[in-house]
Nucleic acid binder design. Structure first.
Lengths: 338, 338
DNA sequence: GTGAAAGCGCTAACAG
DNA sequence: CTGTTAGCGCTTTCAC
């Protein structure tokens, strides 16, 4: 059995309240007593019980992080930023992976609540309509990451997706491409809506026509880009350039195009979104819109910690923070016309 | 404040023990009472307190997972397997990322102990000498993943690294290469020791000389392969083929070689280890030794759950399981001589 | 400085 | 079937 403060107290001939004080560096403990307790604790191999402590203090110094897909290279970098930021403030992080499954998302939301985490950082699966918020019972502060329900009352950090979509498309236009396609994940996605909006804005500004055939949707994985571009090419009509909603899809597009005998960027240009590590690999050289992933994570932590400190669980006018990070255009070979 | 079973009990006019029974689907509760309790619970938005429950039951149905680097594409896939396996048995997973920092590793080990997780799956940083085991106080079952201290008393799951190193090297030899280099991470690594052993075995069996200059070490990241190969090339003497200890390093080698004007595989062949998703990307086509990452994760969970069920915390002859998974040679363009 | 005692929210005997 | 009671290990008043 694990030793408890009572075991220490007994051996130290003090009450266990004193042991608690000594262990927690509280004032009003004689230095000698403190030392005795500390050495005894070490000797007995004492490890405090976070459950018991959490129960009485009503805080666990733990954050929950829910992400949809840990194998998408975008998230690990964000998660790293979060863990670092949390660690700096003595918080640890419960990482939950939903695998794009909405039930899983709900399940984890619930679980984190049961575990009484002090705050939740949620990178939600798509949801225009907010199915999540009713489940967050306003007891635990939540900050959305990467995307957020359209009119949420909670805090969020994400990239300016309209701007990102605009930058990507304008860049392709400036390179001289005039038929530009868009390939995204789920059609009802907030993120994609915005990126698409940016795309349309840029097209419109330059009086370019958006061909509905060239605006297509699938899921978040590489295979989406691969199949869609191949079907376009197979049909004989395909755009001269493609703006893919994320780098994984963009890589799929490159792969599909190349297998169909097209050259990138000579026959078809491609730009992605995220700037995952492999986009910069010399034989990939994928142009993209960079997201400050690490910073996104750290910002999310800052916000949530602030909200935790403010107490009062649910979002209040004072504590809610909405942060839009700036996207950055990164031009590589996949979209350079010369 | 969160409602508790007492709040429910009061409203339902039963004792709170009855509420507990009803909520936990224990027998001997009148169906009507149970229904009343359940509906009240929903109405009050009751969420059980896992801390309180854990405190009395002395189990948290939570696993801890410690990995060195979440941004290395190898780990997310393993982690996914673990989460799935755990989820199937109603366990959740605390994912901790040490960032190759030994102090972090110790810190998390401690933290997980404080949180009273039921078991720990540990993909340790390198350590010949076992600095970790003294910290695992034999109260919580541990299973090592990916690598394990040489003569640990605990369970582990990993790949047969000697075999993997052998397969990789033999393949290069069969392709006709005779000067073959090895680039690995930390020199005192168990994993690398074994892969290197396999490499030496294959070389020896074929009466090939191992040039010490061609056996070099760095860290686990891409940059290692990049710098080492460039320095070799710069010095004028470099091997005709390289066996890199992991895919990331191998990618660095490809990159470095290409930037130095060499063609892969025509001028220099490369094979990696792991089979991360990007190894199969058409413009990468990296040959490699595949690790069954998902299965590795699931196996680790199976073992740990078994050990948890067996109780008795520390490793016992009966519960300890050592599993060596089979590596698989995957030949792609980067190592094909014709 | 230190001890005694209450209580965090829940489970698990033990009675009835 | 249900209530009573005793903790789980810890923090936190309130006395002394």
């Amino acid at each position: 059995m694990n030793p408890t403060i009572k075991d220490i107290a007994q051996r130290a001939n003090v009450s266990y309240a004193t042991v608690s004080r000594a262990l927690n560096n509280k004032p009003f403990v004689k230095e000698a007593t403190r030392r005795r307790v500390l050495s005894l604790a070490k000797e007995l191999n004492y490890t405090p019980n976070a459950l018991a402590r959490g129960l009485v203090k009503k805080e666990t110094r733990t954050l929950g992080l829910i992400i949809p897909d840990i194998t998408n290279p975008f998230y690990p970098e964000v998660a790293q930023g979060i863990q670092e930021g949390a660690g700096d403030s003595g918080f640890s992080v419960f990482l939950c992976n939903t695998n794009w499954d909405h039930d899983q998302e709900l399940h984890y939301l619930n679980l984190l609540e049961e575990k009484r985490v002090d705050g939740i950082i949620l990178a939600p699966i798509e949801n225009q309509v907010d199915v999540v918020e009713p489940h967050i019972r306003n007891r635990i502060p939540v900050v959305y990451l990467d995307k957020a329900p359209r009119k949420t009352r909670n805090s969020y950090v994400m990239i300016d997706n309209v701007r990102g979509g605009f930058l990507a498309t304008r860049h392709l236009i400036e390179q001289g491409y005039d038929t530009i396609g868009f390939i995204g994940a789920a059609e009802d996605s907030l993120t994609i809506d915005d990126r698409l909006k940016g795309y349309r804005m840029a097209m419109e500004q330059n009086r370019l026509k958006v061909h509905d055939d060239f605006v297509r949707f699938g899921n978040y994985r590489q295979v989406t880009g691969y199949t869609i571009i191949q079907s376009m090419i197979g049909s004989g009509r395909y755009p001269r350039a493609v703006f893919a909603e994320n780098d994984l899809i963009a890589l799929g597009v490159m792969q599909g195009a190349r297998e169909a005998g097209l050259k990138v960027p000579e026959d078809i240009a491609v730009i992605g979104f995220d700037d995952i590590p492999f986009a910069s690999f010399p034989e990939v050289q994928l142009s993209t819109i960079r997201q400050p992933k690490h910073q996104m994570g750290r910002t999310a932590v800052e916000i949530i910690l602030q909200q935790i400190k403010a107490g009062n669980g649910g979002p209040t006018a004072a504590s809610v923070k909405r942060v839009l990070l700036e996207p950055e255009l990164v031009v590589r070979r996949s979209s350079r016309s010369r």
